[in-house]
Design a protein around this nucleic acid. Structure first.
Lengths: 259, 259
DNA sequence: ACCACTTATC
DNA sequence: GATAAGTGGT
């Protein structure tokens, strides 16, 4: 059986909000190391990979590997019932029909409990190769969100060009063109605001803004976001969570004359 | 003639907002004890009963019984002109064609005045019997609102089950099931947050969530709400206002296999 | 109290 | 599909 207690129900709520537009149904893979999720979006352009390590829960118990096939719209409906500060416990049997979610208010005077029916989902297991990226950029997540939102007013696509000095997000559309350039900068006082660039080779790649805007819904999960790029390889967008847990998005670059 | 001055125009505004989805046109019954309103919704499942006692106005003058038949959509349009802190005076002749609303800003520097045409409404007078309810639950109005909203994501109906220990709101729908349990609890420090249960007999009844969600629009009128239940009798939902004035909703239970 | 998002309507 | 209102979060 699975029994996993998450101090902040909000964490799962934000994760689901961030991915539900990309993926409708998916398996939450539970085993003794934690709860993981991998799924491609319908058009197979983007991939979501989440891992909530066992250490992110307390306590965490999972005797056997269980795949919980959940409709994310249903899950979101239930998670909206979570109040700020609520504690969430996920429970499932070893061969479950339902997953059980229990929300406790911190004073325990309010308990709400939901069962969500599970579904069988064909799990094409997705191997994600470890990649040595040519460029890794870590920046404030709110900044990336703002950039993507601003540029999406002009164009469907953004070109991300990274050099040792900085990173430039540029686009061209019918009404004109725009770009935002961030220089690498470090300030020990305001670490959250830093822009860190690790570069082995300059890169320039183009991506769909619609997807990036979508990924940025996860900004609430972490003040920082890491972008990893290499030529002809999907972009990785990573939100690191406590206890080495993470939410990652992958997005294939646009090629050649695609817009 | 009627002349009734209400220090907070907002009070009437909130009342109308809370009931206008249930009732289109209704009589405001004015007499020397105050202003009352009773109306059933179109499907005759729910009933609204409001009483603003004469003491809630200052001054209050009403020489004869007058029924003001008002279209609530029109009334709401006019009430939206009320600013925060505005003082409202209602005026009508003894056999009126119109009701006159005057808004004064608290500093009296701004006066606005509206006339709304009245309509003849057949008044089936509704006798509401006094009932000794088997269960009375008083809880924070925001909490009830939240519960009804959360559960309405899962189902059309909610079962309210009350015992000495607590009250459980439960429902079952296509995607799964959910329940919220509140234990009776009292804290002198935060009286507004208390859950008080008066029980002569346990009850379990099922109601339409659509209506309950609607009633909860009145949450802004009072931090507390009282639910009164007895088997096979309509639920009463009461928002108490100052000076023994009140806004009450009644809702017939669903019976048997209805959903 | 403001801003942003989500949902409902045209 | 776009726009507008209502609701929820910061």
């Amino acid at each position: 059986m699975l029994e996993a207690r998450l101090e902040q129900a909000n964490l799962l709520k934000k994760v689901v909000e961030a991915i539900k537009d990309l993926v409708q149904d998916c398996n939450f893979e539970c085993n003794d190391s934690g709860v993981g999720l991998q799924a491609m979006d319908n058009s197979h352009v983007a991939l979501v990979s989440m891992l909530l390590k066992a250490d992110s829960f307390s306590p965490f118990r999972c005797d056997r590997n269980i795949a919980l096939g959940i409709n994310l719209v249903s899950l979101q409906k239930v998670l909206r019932a979570a109040q700020d500060k609520d504690i969430l416990t996920l429970k499932a049997e070893d061969s479950p029909d339902v997953v059980n979610l229990v929300f406790e208010s911190s004073d325990s005077d309010r308990i709400s409990e939901y069962d969500i029916k599970l579904m069988d989902i064909d799990q094409e297991h997705l191997g994600i190769p470890d990649t040595d990226y040519a460029a890794s950029i870590t920046l404030p997540s709110a900044e990336l969100q703002r950039i993507c939102r601003d540029l999406s007013a002009l164009s469907e696509s953004v070109n991300i060009e990274c050099t040792k000095e900085g990173v430039k997000f540029g686009c061209t559309g019918d009404i004109g063109s725009g770009s935002v350039t961030l220089r690498q900068h470090t300030n020990v006082e305001k670490e959250d605001q830093n822009v860190d660039i690790q570069l082995s080779e300059p890169v320039s790649l183009t991506f769909s803004l619609k997807y990036l805007v979508n990924f940025c819904k996860a900004s609430g999960l972490s003040s920082r976001v890491k972008l990893c790029l290499s030529t002809d390889v999907p972009l990785m967008v990573e939100y690191s969570l406590a206890n080495n847990s993470y939410l990652r998005f992958y997005l294939a670059p646009k090629i050649g004359d695609e817009e």
